[in-house]
């Protein structure tokens, strides 16, 4: 880990700690509407001002960070596991399995995922709490976002299948299931881990995209996506630069992730 990676890691840690301390740092909460002070500029009471409905922007950023930073890894975990099961197994098994998995992956990759996500979301039950909705949103992201990782893991599985030590183990009479769990899977761990880490910023940005379309996390729960919606309408930015805070935080976090994961990306490649 070089200096920049350490620095980026510290920043990420700080952001996580701040978001976890949201209840203490912003006691007003993310949902309270101070309707007399809607759209207020930064003040002692509201460090980053209030949004159009009078909600404390600082509190909403902290809680939104908590949601995005906690649930994006969960979505990444779902997608990586799916990718491992589909791509990793198919790559290792080879033959018709690999061809089938490649075809399914190609099919999924060719789908316009955003529209697919919107369509799937429209079919979900309506009467769910905001917390359930955020879980559903990130789960959907995870369930639909496994394809790119699956390709990498398929290639990794295929290379392991043909590796010398697997051939030797197979020649020694080791059963296929034992071979997969004891020899292949542990050797895929670095690639899995890399895929997991590099998926996190992707899911953060995906949720932000959905949020900008108004299809992300349900109100009043904040997320980075819903916070970024304040920036639609370029006319409002020039005079109210504090509205850029969620965007700045998103850029910082995603950049830090990229710096920290630069080694992982080499592994994944």
């Amino acid at each position: 880990m070089n200096f920049w990676q350490k620095l980026a890691g510290c920043i990420l840690l700080l952001v996580v700690c701040l978001s976890l301390a949201a209840g203490w740092l912003a006691p007003a909460g993310y949902a309270y509407q101070d309707r007399e002070n809607a759209g207020a500029p930064p003040s002692h009471q509201h460090w980053l001002g209030t949004d159009d409905l009078g909600r404390d922007r600082f509190a909403r950023i902290l809680y939104g960070t908590r949601i995005s930073l906690l649930l994006a890894p969960a979505a990444a975990l779902i997608s990586t596991l799916l990718a491992a099961m589909i791509g990793g197994f198919a790559g290792y098994a080879g033959g018709i399995w690999q061809r089938a998995a490649t075809a399914i992956t190609d099919l999924f990759l060719s789908l316009p995922w955003l529209f697919l996500l919107i369509a799937v979301r429209a079919l979900m039950p309506l009467n769910i709490s905001p917390l359930e909705s955020v879980t559903v949103t990130f789960s959907l992201l995870g369930l639909l976002g496994w394809t790119a990782a699956a390709r990498v893991l398929c290639a990794a599985g295929a290379s392991l299948r043909d590796s010398d030590f697997v051939c030797q183990a197979r020649a020694s009479g080791v059963r296929n299931s034992r071979l997969f769990w004891i020899h292949v899977l542990p050797n895929m761990a670095p690639v899995l881990l890399a895929q997991f880490w590099i998926s996190i910023p992707v899911f953060i940005l995906s949720e932000a995209n959905l949020g900008i379309l108004g299809l992300g996390v349900a109100e009043p729960l904040p997320s980075w996506g819903s916070l970024l919606r304040e920036l639609e309408g370029m006319i409002s930015i020039g005079d109210e630069p504090w509205k850029l805070a969620p965007l700045a935080l998103l850029v910082v976090v995603v950049t830090c992730f990229q710096i920290v994961l630069s080694n992982q990306q080499e592994v994944a490649a």
């Binding site: 919107i118 369509a119 429209a122 309506l126 009467n127 769910i128 709490s129 905001p130 299809l215 349900a218």
Partner: peptide, 10 residues
């Protein structure tokens, strides 16, 4: 109240 936003066709 659970606020739900849906795309218009849905």
């Amino acid at each position: 109240v659970n606020v739900v936003t849906l795309d218009f066709p849905s």
